[in-house]
Design a protein around this nucleic acid. Structure first.
Length: 288
DNA sequence: GCGATCCTGGCC
DNA sequence: GGCCAGGATCGC
């Protein structure tokens, strides 16, 4: 469900709350946590102080004063909600952190596509985060770095590459479609067909879309709400995602296709015709 | 690289 | 009842 802007919005909702010491932990039977770490998770967190909340791609990382971090991915339907006092538990609540002083943090996830993990090392070697590419908002991700990382996957279509969190982290289906629209690139182009200026344009478009998303508090298309229970407004500003008929700016029409069994929305007028077989076969000018 | 798969809920 | 959904991983 949530992509980088939604997760970042939630992180910011809580930024003034830390540090906070955990008094009690409640973990549901169905909580999406590795089975071997269930009991450990509770005992490790009780008494720990959460120093701050960090984000990498779509992951939220609770850094504690002990040598451990709680890593949360919200999957498709995960929600995190801050309450100033204990309240009734929504259905599908999997974890509640009760803090000293009365505040509580509720984590719910109906579909249980999310993941909860406990990592021992505050920095460095953890298999979960090591696989992730650099965050799209990280300034260290320059055009040259991005081009190099894309270049390792020349055969992927651009759309697929944008969703691949190993190349760079944070994009999901919504912002991938939007970024391709702003970059005026056809989603079925191969990575190998991208020239350097197009990569630069793409990275700029991605950051533009993610920035807009953050500015508007995320997209509440179905049921996303932020950490305080409020809906976002970005759904009002999407050019192509989920639309039929004209793009939001009226410059083209929206077409829906399926890639990797997921929907892609794009505008043929603005993003060019489907790439031709000749282009796909041409060696050379690309970045492969 | 691709498709199947893990789940529930909402909509037609 | 069937289909679709903002994600990621695991087989072939």
């Amino acid at each position: 469900m949530p992509e980088l802007p939604e997760v970042e919005t939630i992180r910011r909702n809580f930024s003034s709350k830390w540090p906070k010491r955990v008094a009690r932990v409640s973990l549901s039977r169905l909580a999406p946590v590795e089975a071997c770490r269930r009991t450990e998770l509770q005992s490790a967190l009780v008494g720990a102080t959460i120093q701050h909340l960090r984000r990498q791609g779509k992951y939220l990382i609770f850094e504690s004063d002990r040598n451990l971090q709680l890593v949360l991915h919200l999957g498709m339907s995960g929600r995190l909600r801050w309450q100033s006092h204990q309240s009734s538990r929504p259905k599908h609540t999997h974890l509640v952190l009760f803090f000293w002083g009365g505040d509580c943090l509720y984590y719910e996830d109906a579909r249980r596509f999310g993941t909860l993990s406990l990592l021992d090392h505050a920095q460095g070697d953890n298999p979960l985060l090591n696989r992730l590419g650099p965050d799209y908002m990280d300034p260290k991700l320059t055009v040259a770095v991005y081009q190099g990382r894309l270049g390792k996957h020349p055969k992927l279509t651009i759309k697929t590459a944008l969703l691949d969190q190993r190349i760079a982290a944070g994009l999901g289906n919504i912002y991938a479609c939007e970024a391709l629209y702003y970059a005026r690139l056809h989603p079925e182009r191969r990575v190998s067909s991208l020239a350097e200026p197009e990569v630069a344009r793409l990275l700029r478009a991605i950051r533009h879309c993610l920035g807009l998303g953050i500015e508007h508090g995320g997209s509440s298309i179905q049921d996303y709400v932020n950490g305080l229970g409020a809906r976002g407004m970005m759904q009002e500003f999407l050019q192509v995602y989920g639309r039929s008929g004209p793009t939001l700016d009226g410059r083209g029409t929206v077409q829906r296709i399926t890639q990797q069994s997921r929907s892609t929305w794009f505008s043929p007028e603005q993003q060019g015709p489907a790439p031709s077989l000749t282009e796909q076969a041409l060696p050379g000018s690309g970045i492969a």
